[in-house]
Design a binder for these strands. Structure first.
Lengths: 237, 237
DNA sequence: ATGCAAAATATCGTATACACTTTTGGCCTC
DNA sequence: GAGGCCAAAAGTGTATACGATATTTTGCAT
């Protein structure tokens, strides 16, 4: 109770300094497809990679398992999640279920600068669409997710925002796995349409567009049953 | 793999044997209001209580923090979550957002035995309603949550089911904190009405009833700003 | 007596160490 | 030569230990 007024300035959202950073790093690596699904994430290796002990590596992997991005098997270790087609369907079903509602909430509270920010995100997305190569496609997937994430952020509901972060991350994993072609390309125009509808305050149309958008992404997936075959494949190389 | 008849089966994600058990135990204690919001959960104490080391206790507390049931502060420790009124509003907003959708999904897949199970849950709920005393009220809150949880289970979407588990748990915490009267009592009849509508395959009415039901629960809360007063109080004690 | 400051204490953050489970490689047997 | 069994190795599960940080207490000066 002494001293000055630092109390208000503390960032405060850092639960653990180390484990959280590692979590973020691995999460990004998974979402950006630098880590292939099914890859084994040995605690020792992860720890060595980030120059920390197994304790922190383990904590990070546990955290990621709660997000559904890695699956840990008792006494076997942690692996980058390999979502089954059924799981993929459920992820998109969840998105169809919640995103219209989020969109409605966001539409009620959205301000002009926020609309501008959305537009800004869109041009960034378009720029990446123009570029070629794998890294650009990865960034494109990420940018596509950021659009949905910002909508959740605008809705003002932290719980839904957190949930959408999880869904978007897992969606990226699914798209990386089962995506056939330039999946997110067709999504770009749809993002723009949604913003336009939002600007007109035509929420119903915006929701419809969102549902179609999600359906389009899902339709571009090849959800045939390859199942655990790919895991073996990944090791065979 | 779809064994369709699985109803209230815990999702088979036994990552660790020990930590998961402790997590469940503490979770139940929080939901059933044996642990008051704001209570400090020292790692040493938790470990000693369950006869395990701090490592497992810490893992369990971390897991609970991801559910939003405990909040961990850097170098301060873990505390039973003390949801702010704003947080409470967001929790219920989230429920209003997702539960109609879950209900629709469930209605599409529901079978006769599952309807019977729902009815069964209802009579159990009614039985607890008849009893008096704190333990009965706790069980009543839990039973009330189980109704919504079973609906999510019937919907067949594991992701939404997991999300609802989190929402219901946090709702129980909120109700325990801000609930004024016999909040869940009026909910009982509404649960029955929803089942009835479901039996008639009148999904739209069921959704309406669900929305009203959630609104009723929320309306019975006293979401005045008591602020962090209670937390300090808990320490002074 | 009160307020500030510094040491003492308690608790968290991280690393290391040990025990147990799973896997793998080799050897023996059929 | 093939298959199964045993042993060694690797890796996870858990416990303990040490260092860092916040909180409390105590002593001193005003």
């Amino acid at each position: 109770m002494n001293s000055s007024a630092d109390a208000l300035l503390t960032p405060g959202d850092a639960t653990d300094s180390g484990a959280q950073q590692i979590r973020e790093a691995i999460r990004d690596a998974i979402v950006e497809r630098r880590l292939a699904p099914g890859t084994k994430l040995s605690e020792s290796d992860v720890g060595a990679l980030f120059s920390v002990s197994r304790t922190l590596a383990r904590a990070a992997l546990q955290a990621l398992s709660y997000e559904g991005l890695v699956s840990v098997e008792k006494n076997r270790g942690a692996f980058v999640a390999y979502p089954s087609p059924e799981e993929a369907r459920q992820i998109f079903a969840a998105r169809r279920l919640v995103e219209p509602g989020i969109l409605r909430s966001a539409a009620e509270r959205i301000t002009a600068p926020q609309l501008a920010q959305l537009r800004q995100l869109l041009v960034e997305e378009g720029r990446l669409m123009g570029e070629r190569g794998q890294p650009a496609r990865r960034a494109e997937i990420k940018a596509s997710g950021d659009f949905h994430l910002m909508l959740a952020s605008i809705s003002g509901n932290l719980i839904m925002q957190r949930f959408m972060e999880e869904l978007v991350a897992r969606s990226s994993l699914v798209i990386a796995l089962y995506g056939q072609s330039s999946a997110s390309s067709c999504g770009h125009a749809e993002h723009g349409d949604i913003i336009t509808a939002l600007e007109r305050k035509d929420v119903d149309t915006a929701c419809d567009l969102m549902l179609h958008h999600i359906a389009h992404i899902e339709a571009d997936l090849d959800l045939r049953e390859r199942k655990s075959f790919g895991l073996k494949e990944a090791f065979e190389r």
